[in-house]
Nucleic acid binder design. Structure first.
Lengths: 168, 168
DNA sequence: AACAACATTTAGATTTTTTTAAACGATCTG
DNA sequence: CAGATCGTTTAAAAAAATCTAAATGTTGTT
């Protein structure tokens, strides 16, 4: 192996590890980033065993990770004729991944946050209504929550704005 | 305690827990969300012991969590005359938190990703140069990496775009 | 149908992260 | 300066997430 090839092997592994750290820092496990990066650095589809061997990891982990990545449209299953294995390749259009993975999960989280907000806002208003006069404390919080819900609405609108969507 | 007050107490706790799950899902611990939400639902500053008691959690956890939140400008230290304790209050302007916390950390991550990209791209080009003729495999990957770096640049530009910044 | 070649599930092991209690250090008070 | 009151650090425990080996399920082949 030439010196340049050795350097490439090293850099490649560092890159895969960096990918793992990145997904880890976003609260998705380390496997997701490693698997994706591994496939990204292959110019042809690979099967589960290839990936597991390449990452020095069990096939079970890869099986689970690959399924998550498919849900994010970050990898794609590919059939190769005459072979029963499942092959996978990386989606190279990051825009697709951002839109279908990141933005979508963000929107979903925003929705559940909005529901929680509405619930807590409602109950604080009820409690404030009970105490006429001395409920200033509760009324302050109610006001604060109203602001929060307004912000939530703005953010939601922004993410669903077609112009903003096109930016990604 | 009236029924409405009881409902508010319950809703309040569910809200705090939801906040914890949210930060957790973003890869920041659960404490951050719980502490922030707790303070958000107080209309006056609270000291470490109050927070720890309110969340049924040790003071050490709160001490650590509060420091992180300060780094994100999500909470603020407040001095109250005649009291030696440190008091904290929640930043209610979410725009501030988004800009100084979320976007900033995103930019930082993008930068390190960019460096990794440059390194691996460089070494794959070196390795490809070594094999004249049969290095098609490597050249494909080099092309792919070039695209990735272009995307990285676009994204970086977008996040630093003053117009986009103002959206947040 | 029996077998072979896979992918997937799961219970348990491992590793990592989080949390805590206790020690420590710093700052104020009398 | 001695004691009291905090916040922080740290070493160890607890909890949670991750990973694996083995079992199970599935699909295709003879």
């Amino acid at each position: 192996m030439t010196e340049a090839e050795q350097a490439w092997t090293d850099a490649r592994w560092r890159f895969i590890e960096a990918g793992g750290r990145t997904t880890q820092s976003f609260g998705l496990g380390r496997m997701l980033g490693q698997i994706y990066t591994f496939l990204y650095l292959c110019d042809e589809p690979r099967c589960l065993d290839d990936i597991a061997e390449g990452l020095a990891v069990s096939k079970a982990s890869v099986s689970i990770g690959v399924r998550q990545l498919e849900g994010w449209l970050a990898v794609r299953k590919v059939w190769i004729k005459g072979d029963r294995k499942d092959f996978y390749e990386a989606e190279t259009d990051f825009g697709v991944i951002l839109r279908s993975g990141f933005l979508e999960s963000l929107t979903k989280k925003l929705n559940t946050a909005g529901e929680q907000l509405a619930q807590v806002e409602d109950s604080v208003k009820q409690a404030a209504a009970g105490k006429n006069g001395d409920g200033e404390h509760l009324r302050n919080i109610a006001r604060r929550l109203k602001d929060a819900r307004r912000f939530h609405g703005k953010l939601n609108g922004l993410l669903n704005n077609p112009i903003v969507k096109k930016l990604f």
